[in-house]
Amino acid sequence: MATKKRYGFVIDISRCIDCRACLVACSAENNVGMQYTRIWVKDTGVKGEFPKLTRTFVPYNCMHCENPPCVEVCVSGATYKDKDTGLVLVDQEACIGCGYCVEACPYDARYLDRARGVVDKCTGCIQRVLVGQQPACVTTCVGKARLFGDLNDPNSEVSVALKNAKAVQRLDYEKNGVDTDPNIYFINGEIDDPSIQPRDPRYTFAQESWKTLLVPAVLAGIGLSFVGQATFFAKQLMEGEKEFEE
């Protein structure tokens, strides 16, 4: 989906030291519940045999996909891709907490906040971005691993970093007719480790039936009631509004 801006992240894997300043910054900035996190540092764990060892840390959060499966499955219309920024957001007033989007996200980048009964996720700190600041995780990144900016703008820090990068990888999920086309670009490191790969979206029977049967039924219901109301209104118009006059 083409948006005015295409905000995304460039992650320099070679620079992440897994200090988790980003995790704390995100939690404080966004009031994230103590048992939840919106962002992660994935860790391949220590690989190899002593003393030939490697370990890779991969900062990770919502990919703000061009084609987000979460938006696709949202039944209430709460999850959407913002037309101006390209960020994938949740209108928590509209969210009914069904959790379908959590199951559908190949990156496990969303969680159901049970206390509040709504889904929560990385917003790219839109509240900061709209006033010209960087997301909290990016501002504080001690290793300068996290970069953020408009990928549509060829002169943005992220575009320049991509241009200069030796190797660029993405965690695109391209299967079963889905192509997420994610907006996180990983540079200067490997992301081939199985622990970092996207998973298949989970669509439950209820979800499928909701999408294929219930939603049309509900829509039809809404449609019918609208027709009914319209008819009633038309009838009223024709009959006049005597009962409202005093």
Binding site: C19, R20, A21, L23, V24, A25, A28, T139, T140, V142
Partner: peptide
């Protein structure tokens, strides 16, 4: 230089 580590970020707590 504009950055804080996890501990610095957590200071309000």
């Amino acid at each position: 230089l504009g950055r804080l580590c996890a501990r610095g970020q957590s200071g309000l707590m």
